[in-house]
Design a protein around this nucleic acid. Structure first.
Length: 152
DNA sequence: GCCAACGTTGGC
DNA sequence: GCCAACGTTGGC
């Protein structure tokens, strides 16, 4: 089982939106970056866990834990004309973008903020903390996962 | 294949 | 709102 960190802007889709979704579940659509796409397509498996990270907001940081419900599959929103995530270069015959279904697992007892994460040498290798990183999906090692949870 | 221009991300 | 960093596009 792998661990991940998945960013979302709470003003667009935050942990509260996920909790309010039917079955507290949704598809993680709209990823339009090839590196992140490759991870969704090739590496995500049913049963993986991910940190839900709030970005571009007053208090950026890890806010919750979500479960990955299935392996990656073609992102259907890319096929829908007039959808904000539509991409005419992606087709059902040759899908360009991938998604996974995710489910709310739990909220952290407190937000573990970006500034706090940056203060721990044990987390220095996390792609999230690398200067200039903009990937919306990044892997988290088992050691990093446990360490972050120990901060909670 | 190079690289300038442009658009986006995301912290501050 | 600013701006650094990065990815993508497209002319050549």
């Amino acid at each position: 089982m792998r661990h991940w960190l998945m960013k979302s802007e709470p003003s667009t889709f935050g942990l509260e939106h996920l909790k309010a979704s039917p079955n507290r579940s949704t598809l993680w659509d709209g990823v339009r970056n090839y590196q992140a796409r490759n991870m969704l397509r090739d590496d995500f498996k049913r049963g993986d866990l991910a940190f839900f990270y709030h970005s571009s907001c007053a208090e950026p940081g890890v806010v919750g834990i979500i479960q990955i419900l299935c392996a990656g599959y073609p992102d259907p929103t890319a096929f829908i004309r007039n959808h904000p995530h539509h991409d005419p270069k992606s087709s059902r015959a040759a899908p360009r973008w991938y998604t996974v279904d995710v489910k709310f697992k739990r909220e952290l007892k407190r937000i573990i903020g970006l500034a706090e994460l940056q203060n721990h040498a044990a987390l220095a290798a996390m792609p999230l903390l690398r200067r200039g990183n903009r990937l919306s999906i990044t892997p988290v090692s088992a050691a990093e996962w446990d360490y972050i949870l120990s901060l909670e």
